[in-house]
């Protein structure tokens, strides 16, 4: 299975641990990632706030480049995005191109001005969707050498992997990550706030509000006895992890909750070396997780 890989800006900087663990597990799963040549920023949720139309054009350039990616002669190219925000913004552009005639015309003309064309045949999938649906949980199970037995994991989806479309899992009560973690041998805690928001970019612009949202998440995970929160998005990871001490300061709490990418937990369960997975690169130490796993 070969995909046109869209890493996005975060995976090349603040979420390099996500990219490294993704790169480590994908060969095990038979997933080949061919990075899209000269991709640009998807626009995240910031550029639509400045120019909703231009942001779709920026995202669509990546789709045009993806369609030109060599995927071993497969009939349609599928983009693999690991960042939920990239996933949502590429999907947004693709849906406007496919479903809105005026937007299709504008995006087509704007791309043409830069010498690109978009057929619109490309598909966009989140890495979690690829692992759960394309690879399949049976195949994942066969790779588990060190089950995450006894590790209590809170499965946190956040927003943009399931909304606005809910294309591969339910927008309110998704189960893909729960099922994946269970296959890895983890004890999945029922996490009611699994699709609540981490605040995203509001951590910069409306910090007080964003800290409240993160306190809600940390409180539930902590009170359910979770050893770790598993995340699928760099923004969620950064807000829950790098700002956890800000939450503690603001709320007088003492959380020390590790926040790890689901790819890191998969790699650990596959018995991969923790350095290859960039485990330990959280602001909150991962030591307690490794200890519980006996690594």
């Amino acid at each position: 299975m070969r995909y046109a890989y869209y890493p996005g800006c975060s995976l090349k900087s603040s979420a390099y641990d996500y990219e490294r663990s993704t790169r480590a597990i994908c060969p095990e799963l038979g997933v080949e990632l061919e990075e899209i040549h000269d991709w640009n920023c998807c626009g995240a949720t910031a550029i639509p706030s400045v120019d909703p139309t231009a942001s779709a054009v920026l995202a669509a350039r990546n789709l045009a480049l993806a369609e030109a990616t060599d995927v071993n002669g497969a009939e349609a190219v599928t983009v693999a995005a690991a960042c939920s925000s990239c996933y949502a913004m590429l999907t947004r552009a693709l849906n406007y191109y496919r479903e809105d005639p005026a937007m299709r015309g504008l995006i087509g003309q704007a791309l043409a001005a830069g010498g690109r064309t978009l057929a619109g045949t490309v598909k966009v999938k989140h890495l979690l969707e690829i692992i759960v649906n394309d690879v399949g949980l049976e195949a994942v199970k066969a790779l588990v050498r060190k089950p995450l037995s006894g590790l209590k994991v809170a499965p946190y989806y956040g927003c943009l992997i399931v909304r606005p479309k809910g294309a591969f899992d339910d927008a309110e009560q998704p189960m893909a990550l729960d099922r994946l973690l269970a296959v890895l041998g983890a004890q999945v805690v029922p996490f009611e706030r699994k699709t609540k928001c981490c605040g995203g970019a509001l951590m910069t612009t409306k910090e007080k509000s964003a800290l409240r949202l993160n306190e809600d998440l940390l409180h539930e995970a902590s009170s359910k006895g979770a050893d770790v929160i598993a995340v699928v998005c760099p923004m969620c990871q950064m807000n829950l992890d790098a700002y956890q001490s800000n939450v503690n300061t603001a709320y007088g709490t003492h959380y020390r909750m590790p926040v790890m990418y689901f790819t890191q937990l998969m790699g650990l369960a596959f018995g991969l070396n923790e350095r290859r997975l960039a485990v330990g690169k959280g602001t909150v130490s991962h030591a307690a997780v490794l200890k519980r796993m006996g690594v």
């Binding site: 949720t45 639509p48 949502a88 927003c159 943009l160 909304r163 606005p164 809910g166 927008a171 309110e172 609540k196 928001c197 605040g199 995203g200 970019a201 509001l202 612009t205 409306k206 509000s209 964003a210 949202l213």
Partner: peptide
Amino acid sequence: IWYCASCYSCTV
């Protein structure tokens, strides 16, 4: 308008 976190809960 600046407090929207773009979580899309309202939209769905």
